[in-house]
Design a binder for these strands. Structure first.
Lengths: 322, 322
DNA sequence: CTGAAAGCGCTTACAG
DNA sequence: CTGAAAGCGCTTACAG
C-alpha cells in the first residue's frame, strides 16, 4: 500500500472539530472568531501529526495559484542574474507569491512541458520571443507572459559604451562580438546601440569583429582588428568575458591598453576589477527595475495584461582599461 | 465577472462526447480504443477552444506530481551551475518530470514558504543543511530531500590541488580562502582536503589566508602570505575568482607566477584561460554524476528515501599558472 | 466503444 | 461559534 496522505480531515478528527474549523484556524480566517482554546487544540494536533496542506488541492479550490515562473536560457544565468532572481523571489514572497525558475526554454520533441506539472499565475520571460519555438513554449502555459525586454536596454548599453569612449578621446570604434549563437539577438541590439551612437557623434561606423573565447582565437581576432583599423582605438565589448579575452590578446600582442586601445566591457562581473588592467565596464542598476517588475507581476496575476516593463538604469564603472 | 476557466467538460460539449472520452483522447490512454474519427473531433475541439488541462486538478486526482524542486543559494549560481541545471532539467523532462529552481534557501519571517503554492515530488538540496533554518525550510516541503553533498567533493578538490602542486615541485602550501560568509562550509571542506593531503605527503600544514575580492584587499593578503612563508610557494585557491584576485595581486607585487608561486584555482570558469598567466584549475566532470542524480530522483519520487548521491569526478585543467 | 459517477483535499458560503 | 455540504477540474474504475 502506498503512503497515505495526511489530510485536514485527519487533523479535524484528532482535535475533535470539523474540517471547516481546521481550515479557519490554519488560515487565520479573520471572519471567524475561534476561541483560543479550540485554536490551540487544532494547532497542536496539526503540529503533532505533521500536517501540511496539499498545495494542488488548495489551488484547485482557489482557482488560481500564486506561482510565478521565470523562464531563462541557461546562457543567461550568471551571478548577477542569480542575485536579481533572489531579490525578486524575496520581494514576491512578501506578497505570498513563490518565484521559481525554469532554465532552458527550448523543448525538444518528447520532453514534457512544465505546464503538465504546474500552472503558474504569471510567466516572466527572459528569453528571445522572436524564436517561434520559444514563443510557442511560453504560450503553452496559457497565462500572462511578462517580457523583460533585453533589447532596448541592449541598445542603451552600446550607446553608453561609445559615449564613454568618445568622452575619453576615442574616435575609432570596434565592436567585439561573442561567438555564441544563442545570444545573437542581444548582440545585435548592443551593436545597434553602438552604431546609433557612432552615427550621432559623427564617428565612422564601428568595425565589427567576433572574438572567440579561446586564447588563440582571440589573438587572431585582435590581429584582424589591427589590420582594418589604425590605433588609437576604442573597443566596445559585448560583455566582460569578451573583454577579458580582448585584454589577454592585447597583452599577448604587447599593445598597451588605455593608451593605444581603450576597452570597455558590460555587466561588471565580480572579477572585472582583477583584469590587467582593471576593466572599465557597464553596470546594471536593477533594484528599481525589479521593484517595478514585482508590481507588474501582481497586476498581471490579478487582472489585465500589463504595460511593458520599464528600462533598466545603467551606469559606467570606470577603472583603468578605458 | 472573472475569467472563466476552460474545462475538459467544455471540450466534451463542443465535440459531443463525454468528459471521460476527452480525457482518454488527450492522455492517449492505451487501454481505450477510440475510433480515429472521434479522436480527431475531440482533438480539433480542444485545439479550437485552446483548452489546457489545469495542472493542480490533475495532480490532486493523481495524488502526486512530477515536479522536482532544486533549492540553491544564489551564491552558488554561476554558468557551470546553470549548465548542469539545464542538463538535469532536460534529462528529467524525458521522464515526464519538470525541474524548477528555487534560489535562496533562507526564509525571513513573514515570507511565504513555496510549499504553499506548490508540492514537489522531490526536493534536491544544494544548500547547507547543517544550518537549522535551512534544514527547517527543506523539511517544510514534507517530501524526500536529495542532498548534493558538496562536502566530500570539496575535500577531494583540496586534495587534488595539493597533489598537483606537489607533483610540480612545491613543498610549501597556502590556502587562499574567500571572504564570503555564505560558503564557509564548503571552504572548510576544501581546506580539510588541503590539510589531509599535506599531511599525507609529509608537507608542513598549509598557511591559510583570506583573500578579499578587492584590489587592495588582495594585495594586503599577498603581503601577509609572504610575511609568513618564504618562496617558492603553491597557492590552492578556493575557486577561480579568488585565483584571479591572487594573480592580480602577485602581478602588482612583481612576483613571477609559476616560477616563484604556483597558483591553482577551482571550477574552470570560461575566462580562466584568459588570466595572466592562464590559470591551472580543477574541473568538475558532472555528466555521469547528474545521470545518477536523475535516477535517484526517479527512485525517491516513487518510493523509498535514497542512497547518498555519488561522488563528482574531478580533473586538473593544466595551463600556465601551476 | 462510451458515459455517469465517484473522489482526490481543500475552502467557504450556508444553516444552525 | 461550529459543522455538513458543495464544488474546484481532473481521471478512472465501473456499468452499459
Amino acid at each position: 500500500m502506498a503512503k497515505q496522505r495526511l489530510t485536514s480531515a485527519d487533523v479535524a478528527r484528532a482535535s475533535g472539530v470539523s474540517q471547516a474549523t481546521v481550515s479557519y484556524v490554519l488560515n487565520n480566517d479573520p471572519r471567524q472568531s475561534i476561541p483560543p482554546e479550540t485554536r490551540e487544540r487544532v494547532l497542536k494536533a496539526a503540529r503533532t501529526l505533521g500536517y501540511r496542506p496539499f498545495a494542488p488541492a488548495r489551488v484547485l479550490r482557489a482557482g488560481y495559484s500564486r506561482l510565478v515562473l521565470l523562464v531563462a536560457q541557461f546562457e543567461q544565468v550568471d551571478p548577477n542574474f542569480a542575485r536579481d532572481l533572489h531579490y525578486l523571489q524575496t520581494g514576491l514572497a512578501g506578497h505570498g507569491y513563490s518565484l521559481i525558475c525554469h532554465v532552458g526554454a527550448h523543448m525538444t520533441a518528447g520532453l514534457t512541458h512544465p505546464s503538465v506539472n504546474l500552472t503558474p499565475a504569471v510567466v516572466i520571460s527572459c528569453v528571445d520571443e522572436t524564436d517561434p519555438a520559444i514563443a510557442a513554449f511560453l504560450r503553452q502555459f496559457g497565462v500572462p507572459v511578462l517580457s523583460i525586454s533585453t533589447v532596448t536596454s541592449g541598445q542603451a548599453v552600446g550607446r553608453i559604451q561609445v559615449t564613454h569612449l568618445a568622452q575619453h578621446g576615442r574616435r575609432r570604434m570596434v565592436f567585439a562580438a561573442p561567438e555564441r549563437r544563442d545570444v545573437q539577438r542581444l548582440v545585435q541590439a548592443r551593436l545597434d546601440g553602438v552604431r546609433q551612437e557612432c552615427s550621432e557623434l559623427a564617428l565612422e561606423p564601428p568595425f565589427v569583429q567576433v572574438v572567440p573565447l579561446s586564447r588563440s582565437g582571440s589573438r587572431e581576432a585582435i590581429a584582424k582588428i589591427l589590420a582594418h583599423r589604425s590605433l588609437p582605438l576604442g573597443i566596445c565589448c559585448y560583455n566582460d568575458e569578451v573583454a577579458f579575452a580582448v585584454l589577454a590578446a592585447l597583452s599577448d600582442a604587447g599593445i598597451p591598453v588605455s593608451d593605444s586601445v581603450a576597452v570597455i566591457g558590460c555587466d561588471d562581473i565580480p572579477i572585472a576589477q582583477f583584469s590587467i588592467p582593471p576593466l572599465t565596464t557597464i553596470a546594471f542598476n536593477n533594484r528599481q527595475f525589479l521593484d517595478l517588475l514585482i508590481e507588474n507581476v501582481l497586476a498581471a496575476s490579478q487582472a489585465e495584461p500589463t504595460q511593458e516593463a520599464p528600462q533598466i538604469p545603467l551606469s559606467v564603472v570606470m577603472r583603468a582599461s578605458a
